[in-house]
Simulated assay, not measured.
Amino acid sequence: MTLPTKDQQTELEAAAFRRLVSHLRNRPDVQNIDLMNLAGFCRNCLSNWYLDAAKETGLDLTKDESREIVYGMPYDEWKARNQSEASTAQQQAFEENRPKE
């Protein structure tokens, strides 16, 4: 087995990130609360991680800009188009499973 070089690893990770973002953009029917309940992260988490990485490299990116990168549009627009009200069951599951900081 040949392991990737550091540069190749970065390229592969970037490609996997782009594919994940594309997949999430093509599945607006999957609500963030469902992602949180099943996987422990959502689109907002992903945009926050992106923002953290940008800040670590000295890039002056805003939360709104990082969300637009992940959502493919302004967050408020995405919410208006795609976000539905969370059910009581979804909210309860979130409270039971939410990450403890």
Rank of each mutant, 00 (worst) to 15 (best):
E101M: 08
N48S: 11
R25H: 05
N37F: 05
A39V: 01
D52M: 07
N97C: 10
A15S: 10
L12V: 13
T5P: 11
I33V: 13
N48F: 14
N48H: 12
S84W: 08
L46Y: 00
G40C: 08
F41W: 10
D34H: 14
E65D: 07
L24T: 03
Y75A: 13
V70R: 03
E68W: 01
T88L: 04
C42I: 01
C42W: 01
S87I: 08
A16W: 12
W49I: 05
P4M: 12
V30L: 15
E96Q: 13
R19T: 11
N37H: 10
E77C: 04
D29V: 02
E77G: 00
D7F: 10
S66Q: 03
S22F: 11
C45A: 12
T88K: 11
I33C: 07
R27C: 06
P28R: 02
N44P: 00
Q8D: 15
L61W: 04
P74A: 15
A80P: 01
L20A: 06
V70P: 06
R25A: 07
A15M: 10
K6W: 12
P99Y: 03
M1D: 13
G72Y: 04
N97F: 02
L61A: 06
Y50R: 02
S87H: 07
F41I: 02
L20H: 03
D76L: 15
K100V: 09
A53K: 12
A14R: 13
V70E: 06
R98F: 10
Q91I: 09
N26W: 03
F41E: 00
I69Y: 06
L51N: 00
R25W: 00
T57R: 12
N97T: 07
Q92F: 10
E11I: 09
F94Y: 14
S87L: 11
L38V: 09
L51H: 01
Q31P: 02
L59S: 11
I33S: 01
A54Y: 03
T88S: 09
S66I: 00
A39F: 11
N44W: 04
K63R: 14
I69N: 05
H23K: 10
A39I: 04
Y75L: 11
L24A: 06
R18Q: 11
Q9A: 15
S47G: 11
F94W: 12
L20R: 02
D60P: 05
Q9Y: 14
K55C: 09
A93G: 09
D76K: 14
K6H: 10
I69G: 00
N26T: 05
P4K: 14
P99M: 09
R43L: 07
A53Q: 11
Q83D: 13
E101S: 10
C42G: 15
E13V: 14
L35C: 08
S84I: 14
Q91G: 12
D64T: 08
Y71T: 06
L51F: 01
M73H: 03
E95I: 03
R19H: 09
L38K: 13
N82F: 15
Q8V: 10
S47E: 05
D52K: 08
E56H: 13
A86W: 04
G72P: 04
D34M: 15
L51P: 02
A54G: 06
Y71Q: 01
L46E: 00
M36T: 05
Y71A: 01
D7M: 09
E95R: 00
